[in-house]
Amino acid sequence: MLLSGKLQRWVEQGLISAEQSSQIAKYEKQHSGGMFLKISFTLAGLLIGLGICLVIGANWDGLPVMLRLFGVFAVFAGFIYGLCRTYALDKAKLREFFLIVCSLMIGATIGLIGQMFNLDGGWQSFALAWSILALPYVFFSRSRLLNGAWFLLLLSGLEWGHFFERMIVWWPWLAIVKWEDYVVPLMIVCILFFCGLSWIARKIDEKIHQYTVIGEAVALIFMFMAYYTLFWFGLTQDIFHNRYVDMWLIRLFVVVFLVGRMLMAVHNQNVVSFKRNAFLLELYIFAVFAVQFSGLLTTGIGFIACGLLILLLIKVLRYTSRYIKNMEIFND
């Protein structure tokens, strides 16, 4: 239903006064289209920036070396000028466009210089240089997408995966034990470690949020890593390591973790988080059954059972959604 229709109904029901209705209408008129503009500028920035990267990558041989170099620097300088103008004109949404393009221009320019001088550095040095040089643009951007992408680029440049693998496998204290026997406890430590990092990033974000959203993006990425590890491991442990105790330990941990997150959501009065974790718990239970009985999918009965299970899941999710909506533990 359109806002005007809703407002009329609310006035008729006595929920708001006619004056409040006109104020809301006026406010919405002034602020509507904000999200559309923001998404449009972000998308345009991404497309133009990636387009420049691709053009430079593909047509670098068609132009003389110096022209290419000056060309890319001139385009880059033009975007920086545009970025500075958005501050002078106070165009916050257009600013995001220039910040995204400038961040991508860094990668394009490094790539071009690498091509021109036949540099043989690998992805890590490229990603690290890109992320360090793009920091001024990312810092001033309010886009979580750009901040998140930047942080992933930085992790990639720092060889995070390699570092993490080493940390788990080659810690001196692990050298004296057979680490494969402790995969599940180690994974639980990893998940809690990610949660801890996310918590620290969230706390830092509370202090710096008015300046930058890097903290928020980092907190979200670490939390995503925790959930990803939780589900990946919670579902594959019984496939890769056929150990009964490990299997039940990780399953128990998944349930305890998600229930814990739900309790935290109640404490923080965060109905969205509560709903998300409740859904994930149900999905997990469903996925455990699906993995356990995947052998049945070779028979017709198995297909029917799986289809029925999906219908049951939908029913349960809808029921959960309705139930949460009416829960009294949330004030609103």
Binding site: F73, L133, P136, Y137
Partner: peptide
């Protein structure tokens, strides 16, 4: 600050 990365690349 915004021009710094460009100068570094140059």
């Amino acid at each position: 600050l915004f021009a710094l990365p460009l100068f570094c690349l140059m």
